[in-house]
Simulated scan of single mutants.
Amino acid sequence: MEIIFIWGMLGGLLRLGITDLINYHVFPLATLIINLIGACALPFWNNYLGKRLKLSSMVINSFGTGFIGSFTTFSGIMIDSFKLIEANQIFSLFSC
């Protein structure tokens, strides 16, 4: 499934680009925005757009898993959590 790799690479690059655009201060705003977008995009893609475009289930699943999955990766949340702990921003950690 090379297509999942390609979608994953593109999703990761988009995440990196958005993270670079939004400066990290006290709260990981970029991670919050990215994960909110992904939380809305995946069900929209899987349940509506992919079917409306009459795409195969392989294309729908590979885009959802590869692109959206890498875009909203859990490791981004973990990195931001450790940054908040190091900065003694425990309250901000629990608010994300």
Rank of each mutant, 00 (worst) to 15 (best):
G66H: 11
K51Y: 04
T31W: 01
N61P: 10
I18M: 02
I18H: 00
F27R: 03
K83L: 14
T73F: 11
F91G: 09
F82C: 04
F27W: 02
N61T: 15
L16W: 10
T73P: 07
L16H: 13
L36A: 06
L21C: 04
L29Q: 09
Y24Q: 15
L93K: 04
K54G: 07
E86P: 10
G8Y: 12
F63G: 04
A87I: 12
G8M: 02
I6C: 03
F71G: 07
T73Q: 05
I68K: 13
S70N: 08
L16F: 08
Y24A: 12
S92N: 11
E2D: 14
H25I: 04
N23F: 04
H25N: 05
I77C: 05
L93E: 02
D80F: 00
W7P: 07
M1Q: 08
Y48W: 15
G11N: 07
L21S: 01
E2K: 06
S57F: 12
S56R: 12
V59W: 14
F63Q: 08
T31L: 08
L10S: 00
F94H: 03
F5Q: 12
G8R: 11
I22D: 02
A39T: 13
F71E: 05
F67R: 03
S75R: 13
G17A: 06
T31G: 03
I33N: 01
A87M: 13
W45M: 10
P28H: 09
I79H: 12
G64A: 14
Q89L: 12
G8K: 08
N23W: 05
L14H: 10
A30T: 11
W45D: 01
P28Q: 14
A87C: 12
L93F: 00
C40M: 14
